[in-house]
């Protein structure tokens, strides 16, 4: 179930930004939400938060993006922020092989803490630093296909593919919701004669205190 709160937007989707420290998560976020980039931005402590409203197939979608600290120490804390997230942008740095190798660990992290239907986009950031490249685009593409993730190389500095990465994730989420809504209508039509009340059990898949915004929970 997606959130329909007021006339400002039709849907509210929660997205998390994850990946190793220093890969450029905060700059991806500031590029997307404020069209800003800073070479000497500060490190993220805990979690930072921003929103952006955009149009997806004639619907107004508000993306609520949570930027998390990359260091290992913060994972225990930040895992709580995954709750209710319907999309994730998993970022690595194309000039640092280690950050690509760690993508696997981040996927495990998502599997452990996020909704199993979460839509994941892997982003190889800093694509402008071609002379320092340590991970080929092909390697990224192959890995993404193997893991069933969307993939793009991005450059927050040059504003390349950042908007597209978020658009892709949000559109995919929107399609999943639409499909679910259709399926639900279908199910409603097929369940008994009209007029007869049908009990719908609304099950909140997450535990108490969690978000109700998850569109992918069953």
């Amino acid at each position: 179930m997606a959130h329909r709160v007021d006339h400002e937007y039709d849907y509210l989707f929660k997205i998390v930004l994850i990946g190793d420290s220093g890969v450029g998560k905060s700059n991806i976020l500031s590029r997307f939400t404020r069209n800003e980039f800073s070479l000497d931005s500060k490190s993220t402590i805990g979690v930072e938060f921003a929103t952006k409203t955009l149009q997806i197939e004639a619907k107004t979608v508000k993306a609520q993006i949570w930027d998390t600290a990359g260091q290992e120490r913060y994972r225990a804390i930040t895992s709580a922020y995954y709750r209710g997230a319907v999309g994730a942008l998993l970022v690595y740095d194309i000039t640092k092989k280690q950050t690509f190798d760690n993508v696997q660990r981040w996927l495990r992290e998502l599997r452990d803490h996020a909704d199993s239907n979460i839509v994941i986009m892997m982003a190889g950031n800093k694509s402008d630093l071609t002379h320092l490249r340590a991970v080929s685009e092909n390697d990224g593409q192959e890995f993404a296909e193997k893991e069933g993730l969307s993939f793009l190389e991005t450059s927050a500095l040059e504003s390349h593919n950042v908007e597209k990465a978020f658009q892709t994730v949000l559109t995919e989420i929107y399609h999943i919701i639409n499909k679910k809504a259709l399926a639900a209508q279908e199910a409603a039509r097929n369940s008994g004669p009209p007029g007869q009340g049908t009990t719908i059990h609304v099950v909140d898949s997450s535990d108490a205190g969690s978000s109700k915004s998850s569109c992918c929970s069953s």
Binding site: H3, I45, F49, K212
Partner: peptide, 17 residues
Amino acid sequence: IYLQVSPQFYAFRWISI
């Protein structure tokens, strides 16, 4: 209405640094 404005969303940074 939506989500609790829990201290972990803002006070984590306040307290830790």
